[in-house]
Simulated scan of single mutants.
Amino acid sequence: MNEELKALLQSFTEYLQIEKNYSTYTIEHYRHDIEELYVFMKEQGLNSLEVIEYFDARLFLTSLYEKKLSRASVSRKISSLRSFYRFLNREKLVMANPFSFVAKPKKEQKLPQFFYEEEIEAILVACEGDKPLQIRNRALFELLYATGVRVSECANVQMKDIDFSLSTVLVKGKGSKERYIPFGSFAQDALKDYLNESRPKLLKGHNHSNVFVNHRGGPLTPRGIRHILNKIIESASLTGKIHPHMLRHTFATHLLNNGADLRTVQELLGHAHLSSTQVYTHVTKEHLRKTYLAHHPRA
């Protein structure tokens, strides 16, 4: 990667941080997608972003399919590069956006995976224990299931964000949009146990306001949370690895199964568009269908 391309990527990164206020996780994806384009440029002998044309963009798209990437990954990369070129065009560094007319693949219609209530109970049993890390893990799982927050949002929750008098947590979502989410008595009890008994022991002299602490006393990262969840699922003897988003899916599915309206679930999840939440209605319908087929005598 030559110095000019490095400088452009750095400028775009600063734009995402300062103007768009994107999370570190999102910005990493953008950087990775653009660096992948830079590798392609080197392979094709393209020495600047200005010379890339629609044909080159199509060729890049073909190279992504040859790598057997999922439709979602390909679609995200195209979106990243469109945004990159829009930024370059705004700064008058290029004249055209070769990715504007590259068709993104249609999304795969996969229903979100979720846990059944008896599986949640098995996981909660696996979280039991009186050691500081076990108490933390119980509180972590209870909060994730009770609120449906993203792992990155959970990792960033601060002490001042939890209001026990109202049983709510203040969450900073995508684009730093804030929302208050209520939690129930089980999460409240688990959090109080953790904050009173476990967190002070885990801090080990560290001074920070993150609610969740790792075994060294520092703030727990999203990667750390994923590792903990995988360990919990192993202890519960459930098959397969737990994907952090499964708890978010479970939160939404269980609310809808028990009569919550779609708009409320949308607000709790922090979805900008109702269409993002509507996928869970398909999950609940499929659940009803399977239950019917399994139990109706003339199904």
Rank of each mutant, 00 (worst) to 15 (best):
residue 228 I to S: 02
residue 150 R to Y: 14
residue 122 A to M: 05
residue 67 K to G: 00
residue 36 E to S: 15
residue 254 H to K: 00
residue 149 V to K: 03
residue 216 R to E: 14
residue 185 S to D: 12
residue 16 L to Q: 07
residue 246 M to W: 12
residue 17 Q to G: 08
residue 59 L to C: 03
residue 222 P to I: 14
residue 93 L to H: 06
residue 90 R to H: 13
residue 285 K to W: 00
residue 244 P to Y: 06
residue 149 V to Y: 13
residue 166 L to R: 13
residue 190 A to V: 10
residue 229 L to V: 14
residue 239 T to Q: 09
residue 197 E to T: 07
residue 13 T to S: 03
residue 114 F to W: 05
residue 80 S to C: 15
residue 139 A to C: 04
residue 221 T to Q: 07
residue 30 Y to H: 01
residue 50 E to A: 11
residue 173 G to I: 11
residue 177 K to I: 12
residue 54 Y to V: 15
residue 99 F to K: 05
residue 270 G to C: 06
residue 143 L to G: 00
residue 197 E to A: 08
residue 54 Y to P: 07
residue 63 S to W: 10
residue 278 Q to A: 12
residue 226 R to D: 10
residue 299 A to R: 00
residue 56 D to R: 08
residue 207 N to W: 06
residue 149 V to T: 14
residue 219 P to Q: 12
residue 298 R to Q: 09
residue 1 M to H: 09
residue 8 L to Y: 06
residue 86 R to E: 14
residue 211 V to R: 05
residue 199 R to C: 06
residue 150 R to N: 08
residue 275 S to G: 05
residue 286 E to P: 00
residue 240 G to R: 06
residue 127 C to S: 04
residue 123 I to W: 00
residue 171 V to A: 07
residue 175 G to P: 12
residue 229 L to P: 13
residue 132 P to W: 08
residue 19 E to A: 07
residue 260 A to Y: 02
residue 49 L to V: 14
residue 157 V to D: 03
residue 167 S to I: 10
residue 160 K to G: 03
residue 88 L to P: 11
residue 250 T to C: 12
residue 73 S to L: 07
residue 2 N to L: 10
residue 115 F to H: 04
residue 55 F to S: 12
residue 115 F to A: 05
residue 175 G to R: 09
residue 56 D to T: 14
residue 256 L to R: 01
residue 288 L to H: 01
residue 96 A to M: 09
residue 266 Q to F: 09
residue 297 P to V: 03
residue 3 E to I: 15
residue 104 K to L: 10
residue 197 E to P: 00
residue 197 E to K: 12
residue 240 G to Y: 09
residue 263 R to G: 09
residue 298 R to H: 10
residue 186 F to A: 11
residue 84 F to Q: 05
residue 293 L to D: 08
residue 217 G to C: 08
residue 266 Q to I: 01
residue 61 L to D: 12
residue 269 L to H: 07
residue 51 V to E: 15
residue 40 F to Q: 02
residue 171 V to C: 11
residue 255 L to M: 09
residue 282 H to W: 10
